[in-house]
Design a protein around this nucleic acid. Structure first.
Lengths: 115, 115
DNA sequence: AGGCATACTTACATTTTTGTTCGTTACTTA
DNA sequence: TAAGTAACGAACAAAAATGTAAGTATGCCT
């Protein structure tokens, strides 16, 4: 696997590419929440621990641009926005699930409590 | 999944924990190379694109401390060191493989060339 | 008129991660 | 004697990711 360019950025392997799309602190938590229902901005904001508006809207915008989620704006007052997962996002949820299970195994392996 | 502490650090979900152990730019490339044979330090250094001594020895040390790899020093001159994967590391390789396949799929999906 | 609500954006500060350069040990070879 | 080699470590610099604080629009409610 040689290096390759994408989005004006250099990558060295497929994992790096995948994590450039769904990595970082908040994208997986967002996709995970959207996996079985629509969520609005404010609900995501209060559900995801410690997330700031900056990181939430930045993450949502990138996931949207990359086609992992879709967005619907309802012209109400105050405005309402709903985010949904797309087909591409559903594929991401599969690997997120695998990573999550691996993480749970590792936690057991390291003797970390979980309730 | 509530927050939890490990290694004096706060985590919010199992994925975050897993990636604290095998994430970053170089740990997966290292584990990937060790999956079917022993490698010595200098071979890893020249095989992994752009890696510096600092990052290589830092990554190796952490993987070693966390039990993903083992190390054998041969008292020759100049010294020779060999790194091997452990059982815990082999489990990591499984999820790395999944992530890699997902990355390849994503690349196709985004129309990125691969030879 | 003033405050509240939602869904954001912008500027700036701080933290985390990674890169660069240099030094070390102990012996061997030119 | 000087230079080379393998496998690092330490100090410092730069870059990338994240955090903080504040501001925006529209319109309702009091």
């Amino acid at each position: 696997m040689p290096d390759f360019f994408a989005d004006k950025h250099l990558f060295h392997n497929p994992v790096e590419f995948a994590l450039s799309k769904i990595g970082g602190s908040y994208k997986m938590p967002i996709l995970w929440r959207l996996k079985d229902k629509a969520w609005r901005y404010s609900a995501l904001a209060s559900s995801i621990p410690h997330i700031s508006d900056r990181m939430l809207s930045k993450s949502l915008k990138e996931l949207l641009n990359d086609g992992f989620i879709s967005k619907e704006i309802f012209p109400e007052v105050p405005p309402r926005t709903e985010y949904n997962i797309t087909e591409r996002g559903k594929k991401a949820v599969i690997i997120i699930t695998a990573l999550r299970n691996y993480g749970l195994d590792l936690m057991k392996d390291f003797g970390i409590a979980q309730e």
